[in-house]
Design a protein around this nucleic acid. Structure first.
Lengths: 173, 173
DNA sequence: TTTCCCATGTAATCAGTTACATGATTAG
DNA sequence: CTAATCATGTAACTGATTACATGGGAAA
């Protein structure tokens, strides 16, 4: 039930509506950590409110409901962070595709790897820029998202380097 | 429907029974790429046989059925590899937990990061050993699994380094 | 002879996706 | 006035988990 913990995590920063949480999912978690759509987020928030992990802090225009995390919600989030399940479930189509590279011949593998390296370069450039801007704005503090950006940057650099290495190994075989 | 492609990928190496595919999932894909259990694998193989992506190559003792990939199965796998969907779905509890580190205070973050760094070290050592053994056995060839092992090694090194960096940033804030 | 591993399956439930459905507000 | 975005939801379906269920073969 990680959707629940992802939502608690986002709400622990600040209260938000289902709509905002959907946006933040897209921006912050979707790419690396967890994927969810509004059609799953709205009902889950309702359930979490029933379980007293969140409360409706405000109701605004157009039926907008702002949810805030409760103490019980914070406790549950902390519990999950400190006492994690021993097996983490992973489902990652991109990584699966990399793992199945060995089913392709050299030509096809090149067709996969070359664009992959390019897209890594673009991601890396974008993340570097985002990090530089954030560091300048915060003056050396550690804002929410800085750890994540660094993780993304390093992961993409690693992926790019691995893909280059794999390309070379494949060419010379 | 990535389970299907994961199974095609494993079968493109060699024919296998549902039981063997379950083992191979655990060994090769579970940790990084895709998770599936026997209760999902068996019905999926039946469906794939109905769709002519695999065939029952042999029936053995205890109701054992060995599945082999068909030409249609290979074509479908290749199609998926070369023409991927533009958005890859990711669901990764471990990464989610890292992303939510910023919800913890410095003490709690340390409690998460220190064991994480340790477990990375253990993984790295095990992967290095596996790679060295495989390289010695294959004499410089590129056996199935070598790319994957390298990817795992580099990913864990990156995770370890990031976690160390994060620990330092957190301590000094 | 009993314990462990091999081997396959189904049923009930839960999680997640896709498609449908509605309507208010804001900016141009 | 009209297009884009804000904003929330439900229904039908598919994917995935958990628990149940069964039994053969091998080794100790």
């Amino acid at each position: 039930m990680s959707l629940r913990h992802a939502l608690l995590g986002l709400l622990s920063d600040e209260p938000a509506s289902g709509y905002e949480l959907t946006r933040r999912f897209e921006k912050a978690l979707q790419r690396y950590a967890w994927h969810a759509q509004h059609s799953q987020i709205y009902p889950e928030l309702t359930k979490m409110a029933a379980d007293s992990l969140v409360t409706v802090a405000a109701e605004g225009a157009r039926g907008r409901r702002t949810y805030a995390i409760t103490d019980a919600g914070r406790a549950e989030l902390r519990r999950w962070m400190l006492d994690p399940p021993e097996t983490f479930v992973v489902r990652d189509e991109g990584t699966l595709r990399l793992f199945l590279l060995s089913t392709l011949d050299a030509d096809d593998a090149r067709t996969v790897l070359v664009p992959l390296i390019d897209s890594c370069e673009r991601e890396i450039a974008a993340l570097r820029k985002g990090i530089a801007d954030a560091d300048a704005a915060s003056g050396g503090g550690l804002p929410f998202g800085r750890l994540v950006a660094e993780y993304g940057l390093r992961s993409f650099e690693t992926l790019r380097d691995w893909a280059s290495w794999a390309l070379e190994r494949i060419e010379h075989n």
